[in-house]
Design a binder for these strands. Structure first.
Length: 262
DNA sequence: TGTGATGTTGAATG
DNA sequence: GCATTCAACATCAC
């Protein structure tokens, strides 16, 4: 689930539910996804604190604490937030939960444990240490094109590379390639700067639309790929054939005969 | 029952 | 240095 639009939805959910309530207790069921602290250290650091805001960059969500430090929530493939009142509303794969002083809870659910939770003392320092590109919605066209210039990677690989642009994942990368009529295996340096800027605008348009629909796939426009991601099926309007392959190590769908390989 | 899954990382390879 | 592939992480659903 969690690519940029999904994480944006998590952020809204977090801000709409979990701010300004003192964390009275923290319960850790499985500390595996907490990367830089033990379970008991995690409990010690968070107990008594209050969430006061958040910052999202790409798929990284930083929950801001009242001591100006942050908790990084990276959702991996299956992370999810669950704010609830009654204990029986607890989800099956809850890994830890904050008990707020108003009786509410914020649980972090993650069946596959690919999520990464990290306690960040200094956000600016952390961001300068990791290789994380500018957020896909924030990056300027000039910066995007400049980063693309000369790259020999496939366009799909480039879009997935979080150190170039942060936020695009496997599904949206396919959608961007589809909507620009470009084969996902095309080399970035074979594309004109005009095409690179078309990709930039498609990326922003698609992510914005997805956010507007709260990353709820069923509400996406009918001509998006959700409707046609089936190998061997005819493409939209009967043009071309849906192909499934592997590009940049990820399962990739595109329409043979419609998306041009450069 | 086997296969693959919306993410990231590190090692190995070209 | 750059790009790609693969394995690993752990679990579930088809």
């Amino acid at each position: 689930m969690p690519e940029l639009p999904e994480v944006n939805t998590f952020q809204k959910y977090f801000e709409g539910t979990s701010l300004d309530q003192r964390i009275e207790a923290v319960e850790v069921h499985d500390a595996k996804i907490i990367r830089n602290l033990s379970g008991s250290e995690f409990i010690d650091r968070l107990t008594g604190r209050t969430f006061v805001g958040s910052y999202r960059r790409g798929k990284y969500l930083f929950a801001k604490l009242d001591n100006a430090e942050h908790l990084l929530l990276h959702f991996g493939m299956t992370g999810d937030l669950n704010y609830y009142a009654e204990p029986q509303e607890r989800t099956k794969h809850e890994r830890f939960v904050f008990h707020f002083d108003n009786g509410q809870h914020l649980g972090f659910d993650c069946p596959r444990k690919f999520a990464r939770i990290q306690y960040i003392e200094d956000l600016a320092v952390y961001l300068s240490e990791i290789q994380l590109g500018e957020d896909a919605l924030v990056i300027t066209e000039a910066d995007f094109v400049q980063r693309a210039t000369g790259k020999t990677a496939t366009i799909k690989g480039f879009l997935l590379n979080q150190s170039q642009v942060a936020g695009v994942g496997n599904l949206y990368a396919d959608e961007i390639c589809y909507q620009t009529g470009i084969h996902p295996g095309s080399r970035v340096n074979k594309l004109s700067s005009q095409q690179q800027s078309e990709i930039y605008h498609a990326m922003q348009r698609i992510l914005r639309k997805a956010i507007e629909r709260s990353a709820y796939y069923k509400d996406y426009p009918e001509n998006w790929f959700w409707e046609w991601r089936k190998e061997g099926a005819p493409g939209p309007e009967g043009k071309g054939i849906v192909q499934r392959t592997k590009i940049a190590g990820r399962t990739t769908y595109f329409i043979e005969g419609v998306q041009v390989l450069y």
